[in-house]
Nucleic acid binder design. Structure first.
Lengths: 136, 136
DNA sequence: TTTACAAATCGTAATCGTTACGATATACTC
DNA sequence: GAGTATATCGTAACGATTACGATTTGTAAA
């Protein structure tokens, strides 16, 4: 997802433009990988001394609601990244060192022969963890 | 895994037998699904008034180290279940209502055609969430 | 069966990520 | 420029987990 797209979504949905919001999106746009709330707080604290946790988490949740960010839970901590708008449904390899990701095109729910008669399937999680070529 | 096997592992590894440890294993043996530390604490508190968090978490981690329990993270909370000793490698469907599981025999790492040249793969997670037939 | 000691537990406080909220400041509309 | 809903700040509270000194207990050797 591009920065402009994300800002347009905010505007279209009637949310206010603030410099902090733009900076949050710029941050994720530069990162290309999963980042935590405290990663973001540390980054923004350089520019905005005394920025509140409330601001960080409120915007992360908002952006997640608006499908601007994707969220996953990793080592007991929520991680966020810019939504990969171009894939309808996909999974990720995640580098445990730098957080960068590689999209996995295939989905096990389609490829595997699963028998869940009588079950109600809500969702699923498939992630591969390791080191990307740069970190290896 | 059977209760006796688990107790034997403890004995063989030189850990002491305590009634609390047996009760923890009995608890998981009866549950057949993922349970949290506080599920266990609530259960044991009936019999042992004032049981310590230290006891709960220390034993959960010990049993996990000894492969007596399996662990997964679900909704930001660690969940534990008796290890399914009979499957060499497997994944689970997990009922979001009662925590009971259904083993998934196939593994996407084998079935999917994945290209990770240059990457170092450490591990992976594949879980399906929903409602089991009883809860549906 | 007593003794000795390492291991296990208790009681409680600290930590960490996250959430919550009243007070204040700010973006946007008219 | 004024009014208002929204965003932010500052800070406290929360829930899960970890930590630790003091005490108790299981086990094995005397």
């Amino acid at each position: 997802m591009q920065l402009n797209q994300a800002l347009d979504i905010l505007k279209d949905e009637g949310y206010k433009y603030t410099e902090k919001r733009e900076d949050i999106l710029v941050f994720f746009n530069e990162q290309d990988g999963y980042r935590t709330a405290s990663d973001l707080l540390n980054h923004l604290s350089q520019k905005y001394n005394g920025i509140s946790y409330d601001t960080i988490y409120r915007n992360l949740h908002l952006f997640n609601e608006l499908n601007i960010l994707e969220q996953t839970e990793l080592d007991g901590e929520k991680h966020f990244r810019l939504s990969c708008g171009h894939h309808e449904h996909h999974h990720h390899f995640i580098c445990k060192s730098c957080g960068k990701t590689k999209a996995i095109e295939a989905c096990p729910m389609n490829e595997l022969n699963l028998n869940f008669n009588g079950y109600f399937i809500e969702n699923h999680k498939f992630e591969i963890y390791g080191l990307c070529p740069s970190c290896h």
